[in-house]
Nucleic acid binder design. Structure first.
Lengths: 271, 271
DNA sequence: TTCATACAGTATAGAACATACACTAATATA
DNA sequence: TATATTAGTGTATGTTCTATACTGTATGAA
């Protein structure tokens, strides 16, 4: 099944054209004029537009204009606007943080926060990051580093992949949460609830405590009254540590019944 | 701060018009013709269109047509198309599962899976569910039930809310993952990697094991070669149990040092 | 009973957009 | 040199959201 080993292969599958271009695997040009464009320049221009004008500013015309080129040129390199958006997300990420001999737990904390921060730095990615399995060079490097951090744990490869994937989903989720307490839409008529407090008072106004007993109780207890340090984000660490604690527990379990990888080990079920 | 207590209030804030309409808090009509529309019918029509033709079929014209009405009518009830999309997501959810005396852990398992399944049943929600804090009656009921499941644990209200929110984010994440191994776009030029195997072989083809040592090792070990029971989803339970184990650990910690809620309790940090 | 006012839905039109298709010009191979 | 192949262009079409001005209707006040 998994025939691999690196660099040179027998040339296997068609490989979707976009993926090929993302990896620089294009057949060298044979005839015709010298290309003045390439996927990289196009992507960079599109990202620049998104950074400057937001996602709604990203139109084929706009991107083309920034390159001094006719809109239709872009379609030589990108099958559709949606493809362009996908590549933008892929290449808007920096490289992942370095491992530097940190413990798996420390590194994954850094990794997840960096992941979240990358999304927050370019919030236009949030609506278009489709959380598909990573396929580009950058996102795969992120995955690789997370796996590397877990390399010397007794987890199976599958468990490592699952753990990394889950953490990346958590980063995405947190970025969304922070990015906007917006209820309506993307930018225009954004019925924005600008603060946690405002969210709390709105809830208080709406909730009938008969229909929402537990939630009303939570609101009463002041959960949504602006805890002091939203800045140094306790909420982010809370969920992250849930996950890391879960991973730690799994590692501990694996370390005990080491020889017999039992698929359904006992789990605590405290009240 | 949190002035509340249910039903009758002193009438507080403007309350965003869309939110008001979602909760049926509109001033009763005084003059003019009888309305033939309302937000509910519009939303239902829009959902029907989305179910039938996918998200791209949802245009104002299309929705209006299904109601036998001119497109511009909708703007009496919805400030923009994006608002309509937001309301669609809100009201496409069923009510949450019943608690029925289950343990917090059992219930949250059911709850999270139901949440995921609701998203998978109407995958058009995935690109437009913005993971904002819930504000509609349905999504708040979901939150309420999760809090109820945790009611008799020693967690603080804030921790309960965080836990519920994180689980809901996990459900969303998993739904995205399952919904499509698509790399390109939404429907047209979808350079779809149709299976886990295909994903695996594509990775094998692309990866240089020098640049991606840990990931290449994972691929070599056959992680992406279609584990037997993707159907009865072990992957979903994996990440879910990470979270639930983390919650269990937190509960255990809280139960021990009960009197002194110490913000930074010790955590395990196994190698 | 009359009339002004407020409101529901409509008609029209405009601007922006993605993209299909046919084309021109440039380059490398035969 | 002739020919095939390719990069980028111009034009055009259909769709989309939505601003604005409008028509008719029901109500409350005079």
């Amino acid at each position: 099944m998994s025939q691999r080993k690196g660099t040179a292969m027998v040339d296997e599958q068609p490989l979707p054209p976009l993926v090929a271009r993302m990896w620089g695997r294009e057949p060298p040009t044979r005839r015709g004029p010298q290309p003045s464009l390439n996927l990289e320049r196009i992507t960079a221009a599109a990202i620049a537009v998104a950074d400057a004008e937001g996602l709604s500013g990203v139109s084929m015309s706009n991107v083309a204009a920034r390159l001094g080129v006719a809109p239709m040129s872009l379609y030589r390199y990108v099958g559709s606007k949606d493809e362009l958006l996908a590549v933008m997300v892929e290449s808007a990420f920096e490289n992942p943080p370095r491992l530097d001999g940190r413990s798996w737990r420390d590194y994954l904390t850094v990794w997840t926060r960096a992941n979240r921060d990358a999304l927050l730095a370019r919030p236009w990615m949030l609506p278009i990051a489709h959380l598909a399995p990573p396929i580009g060079p950058r996102s795969l490097r992120w995955l690789d580093r997370a796996l590397a951090a877990l390399a010397h744990t007794p987890l199976t490869e599958g468990e490592k992949v699952n753990a990394a994937t889950t953490l990346s989903g958590y980063a995405f989720f947190q970025a969304n949460l922070i990015s906007g307490l917006s209820v309506g839409a993307n930018q225009r008529e954004r019925a924005r609830l600008t603060s946690v407090q405002e969210y709390g008072t709105t809830l208080a106004e709406l909730l009938d405590s008969a229909d929402y007993p537990a939630l009303a109780h939570a609101v009463d207890s002041g959960v949504f009254s602006a805890s002091q340090d939203w800045v140094e984000d306790a909420d982010f660490l809370f969920g992250l540590n849930l996950l890391l604690d879960g991973i730690a527990a799994l590692i501990a379990r694996r370390s005990v019944d080491d020889e017999q990888p039992n698929e359904t080990s006992p789990r605590s079920d405290a009240p």
